[in-house]
């Protein structure tokens, strides 16, 4: 692996994740020392827990949504001189070793960014309803953006500095995933997909999006496309 671990900044957006964030950051830091947790206006001890685990903690004084938190963390990672910015969810659904695979993919393919997909192999045990919603969302994304990815809303990504500088998330809520794909096309970034495993726990499911939220996400995204 050519990318040095010290040049990697892992951005973890977290909202009321006090129960999980310490474990996630602690595990991350064993492999990647630079972890940026963006506490998105949590009302619990998320910030303190993240700090205790050794993360750089950025605090949104008001809850602004996951997209907003990601953009904040990415900007800070760039400011710290990160060569690669990784986005990683705070609820423990991602595996740290999958970051290695994303970075390897960046190295081998010379891509600008690598995105995780839970549908490239059969390792993730995706619940049936979630699978159905994601299938629709992925088709929607393919049609609207024209980028042929297989997983619409995977929170695990690795962006080279050049890509992270170009991508600007303006949708504060959950529609940022579609927005990123949109900007991949607009900036003609080279993207590669990597099979990753999503661990569905009771905890991560309780924190996840409901099927109904998909409509809101789609609306936010389409609105942005119409009135940019």
């Amino acid at each position: 692996m050519q990318i040095s671990r010290g040049g990697v900044y892992v951005v973890v957006p977290a909202y009321n994740e006090a129960a999980a964030v310490f474990g996630v950051v602690d595990e991350l830091r064993r492999a990647y020392p630079n972890v940026i947790v963006v506490d998105d206006g949590s009302r619990d001890a998320t910030a303190a827990e993240a700090r205790r685990a050794g993360a750089i903690v950025l605090r949104h004084v008001l809850n602004r949504g996951q997209g907003a938190a990601l953009q904040t963390g990415i900007e800070y990672g760039l400011r710290c001189g990160g060569e690669v910015i990784v986005t990683f969810d705070a609820d423990g659904q991602h595996r740290v070793e999958d970051i290695d695979r994303l970075l390897d993919a960046l190295d081998q393919t010379n891509a600008d960014l690598a995105i995780g997909s839970r549908f490239l192999d059969r390792q993730s045990k995706v619940p049936a309803r979630r699978r159905a919603v994601l299938r629709v969302a992925t088709q929607f994304m393919r049609i609207t953006s024209g980028v042929p990815l297989t997983d619409a809303h995977n929170g695990l990504r690795a962006l080279r500095r050049t890509a992270a500088e170009k991508i600007r998330i303006t949708l504060d809520g959950m529609a940022h995933a579609s927005e990123i794909v949109d900007q991949i096309r607009r900036h003609q970034l080279r993207v590669t997909e990597v099979p990753v495993v999503i661990r569905y726990s009771e905890y991560s499911m309780s924190k996840g999006q409901s099927g109904l939220a998909a409509f809101r996400i789609a609306f936010d995204y389409l609105f942005k496309r119409l009135f940019r």
């Binding site: 903690v57 950025l58 949104h60 008001l62 907003a68 800070y76 303006t170």
Partner: peptide, 16 residues
């Protein structure tokens, strides 16, 4: 959008 910009600015400045 403006509120997000302010919140982000505060977060980054404080951390820096």
């Amino acid at each position: 959008e403006q509120m997000t910009k302010i919140v982000r600015h505060i977060a980054i400045e404080n951390a820096a």
